[in-house]
Simulated assay, not measured.
Amino acid sequence: MEIIRSKEFKASRAWGAKDIANMNGITTRLHWTDQPYKWHINDGEEVFVVLDGVVEMQYRIDGKEETTILQTGDIFYASVGTEHVAHPQGEARILVVETAGSV
């Protein structure tokens, strides 16, 4: 049993994470960042939940780049093969649920 105060979490580096759970190969991690990630495609599906802050999410569909702004409480679901990159606008805390070992 653990209670996690996500707004108090801060990693020592961008995209640093606190591992919360690994359930049958699916991980749940709390990330802190103030820097963009990198363009990537996950090994499986990904659920990306903005817990604190604002994140510009860029993604590609059929080679065309799209952008959306995710506010606190918004959820981005990346299906298998969705190429995407997250650009926080200042500090952000993000809950990510994905296959263990995924990029």
Results as ranks from 00 to 15, higher is better:
Thr67Gly: 02
Ala17Leu: 05
Gly90His: 05
Asn22Cys: 10
Gly63Met: 09
His31Tyr: 15
Phe76Met: 09
Ile3Glu: 06
Ala92His: 04
Ala92Lys: 07
Tyr37His: 13
Glu46Ile: 10
Val50Leu: 05
Glu83Arg: 06
Leu30Ala: 14
Pro36Gln: 00
Val50Gln: 01
Arg29Lys: 15
Glu2Asp: 13
Ile26Val: 15
Glu2Asn: 13
Ser12Glu: 08
His31Thr: 15
Ile20Leu: 15
Thr28Met: 14
Leu51Val: 06
Trp15Asn: 01
Tyr37Asn: 10
Val96Leu: 10
Lys7Gly: 07
Gly81Arg: 01
Ile3Ser: 03
Ile41Arg: 01
Gln89Asp: 12
Lys7Val: 08
Phe48Leu: 14
Leu70Met: 15
Met1Ile: 14
Asp34Gln: 07
Ser79Asn: 12
Pro36Val: 00
Thr27Ser: 11
Phe76Trp: 07
Trp32Cys: 12
Val80Asn: 03
Ala92Ile: 13
Ile61Trp: 06
Ala21Tyr: 08
Arg29Glu: 11
Met57Glu: 11
Ile69Phe: 15
Trp32His: 12
Phe76Pro: 06
Ala100Trp: 04
Asp34Val: 11
Tyr59Trp: 13
Asn42Cys: 10
Glu91Gln: 04
Asn24Cys: 12
Val85Lys: 00
Tyr37Trp: 13
Leu95Lys: 07
Ile20Tyr: 02
Met57Ile: 08
Ala78Phe: 06
Val97Asn: 01
Gln89Ile: 14
Gln58His: 06
Glu66Tyr: 15
Val97Phe: 02
Met1Tyr: 03
Asp19Leu: 13
Val80Phe: 04
Thr82Cys: 11
Ile69Trp: 13
Glu2Cys: 12
Val80Trp: 02
Glu45Gln: 04
Arg60Gly: 08
Thr67His: 01
Asp19Tyr: 10
Asp19His: 12
Thr33Asp: 06
Trp39Lys: 00
Arg93Asn: 02
Glu83Ala: 14
Asp52Trp: 01
Phe76Ala: 12
His84Arg: 02
Ile94Val: 15
Lys10Arg: 09
Glu46Trp: 09
Lys38Leu: 06
Gly63Trp: 14
Arg13Asp: 10
Ser12Pro: 09
Lys10Gly: 03
Ser12Trp: 03
Val47Gln: 01
Val49Leu: 10
Ser12Ala: 11
Tyr77Asp: 05
Lys38Trp: 07
Pro88Arg: 02
Ile26Ser: 05
Ile69His: 14
Thr72His: 02
Asn24Leu: 12
Val80Asp: 06
Gln35Cys: 10
Asn24Val: 13
Asp62Gly: 04
His40Tyr: 05
Val103Leu: 10
Ser79Asp: 09
Leu95Met: 14
Thr99Lys: 14
Tyr77Ile: 15
Ser12Arg: 01
Ile4Phe: 03
Ala14Glu: 05
Val50Ser: 01
Ala78Gln: 02
Glu56Ala: 07
Ala11Cys: 08
Gln89Cys: 11
Tyr77Ser: 10
Phe9Asn: 01
Gln35Ala: 15
Thr82Phe: 02
Arg60Pro: 05
Val50Gly: 04
Lys18Gly: 09
Tyr59Leu: 08
Val96Pro: 00
Ser79Val: 09
Gly81Gln: 02
Gln58Met: 06
Thr72Phe: 08
His87Asp: 03
Thr27Gly: 09
Trp32Ser: 11
His40Met: 08
Gln71Ala: 14
Ser79Glu: 07
His40Glu: 10
Val96Ser: 03
Asp62Asn: 12
Arg13Lys: 11
Asp52Glu: 13
Ser79Ile: 06
Val103Trp: 00
